[in-house]
């Protein structure tokens, strides 16, 4: 029987997006063998966890500690380790925080670790996961034996409807040494969503001609009403037109949004590696021979300075209805 612990993320006293998705993945693993899912929430105490039962948690383990105001890897690892013997698998979201946490937990409890997992299954003694490698140019299937730590990629599992009790249980944070002191989070300049989290990503490339033209993309993102982020190709990040946090591609972020709109991006292989798993790809480019059109579901050949404002107006109109 595979009991699963899902370690959820908290920021500013609230659960992060992706908590329900993570519970869905945990549920899938647990249900395969009639196991249970516990959600672990490390916080200073006042987090609303009411939705977690509906999202699939049998129990919600709340661990309160004054050091949990910010992300506290050392305290979280100690807390997970104190309960880990009860679980076949420990899952985290493959976010920046989850990917920081997973290998620490794995090393502490002497378990193997798999990152960026897009699919997870239990078969006998083995947990089988699929994960993109070589920047998405190949998919690796890996078998992990014994207790296992898995970071599940955002977007891999939709939230499930199968609700559970979500019974609240308080657990004690064991003593730990706070080796790393996270002092806070400085909000990035854009104020927009992060490309790795957004449902819609609109990326710009050299075709924009000038960094000031990114405003066109920001306007289009704004038309989506807070669910879109603006990304950039490596060429324009290297040229200093956009922050590297916005870079989509092999040396930047890998994104899997529902809608990816590539504007003035030719589609170098390194860029494609970062966005090819998007559900729908739209390309807008002046050059009809641009490689981006080979991966795009829908393409418009034309001047982005005409097409993008027209698209912005059309999206606004649809959203207004």
């Amino acid at each position: 029987m595979a009991n699963v612990l899902a370690v959820l993320e908290v920021r500013n006293g609230a659960l992060r997006k992706g908590s329900a998705e993570l519970l869905a993945a945990a549920r899938r693993l647990a249900d395969a063998s009639g196991g249970t899912v516990d959600a672990l929430v490390c916080s200073t105490g006042a987090v609303n966890t009411d939705t977690l039962g509906a999202a699939g948690a049998d129990r919600v383990l709340s661990a309160s500690h004054a050091d949990f105001a910010n992300y506290c890897p050392d305290g979280t690892v100690a807390t997970v380790a104190s309960v880990s013997a009860q679980y076949r698998a420990i899952v985290v979201s493959a976010s920046a925080t989850g990917k920081d946490l997973a290998p620490r937990i794995a090393a502490r409890i002497n378990a193997p670790c798999a990152m960026d997992v897009t699919s997870v299954d239990l078969s006998g003694d083995t947990i089988r996961v699929v994960r993109p490698v070589y920047a998405g140019k190949a998919l690796q299937t890996v078998d992990l034996r014994g207790s296992t730590v898995i970071a599940v990629r955002p977007g891999a599992y939709a939230g499930l409807g199968a609700g559970k009790a979500g019974a609240n249980v308080s657990i004690t944070v064991p003593p730990f040494t706070k080796r790393l002191d996270v002092t806070g989070i400085r909000t990035a300049n854009t104020g927009l969503l992060d490309v790795a989290e957004a449902r819609v990503v609109i990326s710009g490339g050299r075709g924009l001609g000038d960094p000031k033209h990114f405003v066109l993309l920001e306007e289009l993102a704004a038309a989506f009403g807070g669910e879109a982020a603006v990304g950039a190709s490596r060429a324009v990040v290297d040229a200093g037109w956009a922050e590297h946090g916005a870079q989509v591609g092999q040396t930047g972020k890998t994104v899997a949004p529902e809608l990816y709109i590539a504007v003035g991006i030719s589609g170098a292989i390194q860029h494609l590696a970062g966005m090819r798993t998007a559900k729908v790809i739209v390309a807008i480019n002046r050059d009809k021979d641009a490689p981006i059109f080979k991966v795009a579901d829908y393409g418009i050949v034309g001047d982005l300075f005409e097409v993008v404002p027209a698209l912005t107006a059309a999206v606004k109109q649809v959203k207004a209805h």
């Binding site: 075709g207 030719s266 170098a268 050059d287 641009a290 490689p291």
Partner: peptide, 8 residues
Amino acid sequence: MAGSAEYT
């Protein structure tokens, strides 16, 4: 676009 992929 010219030179979009690295020269090897």
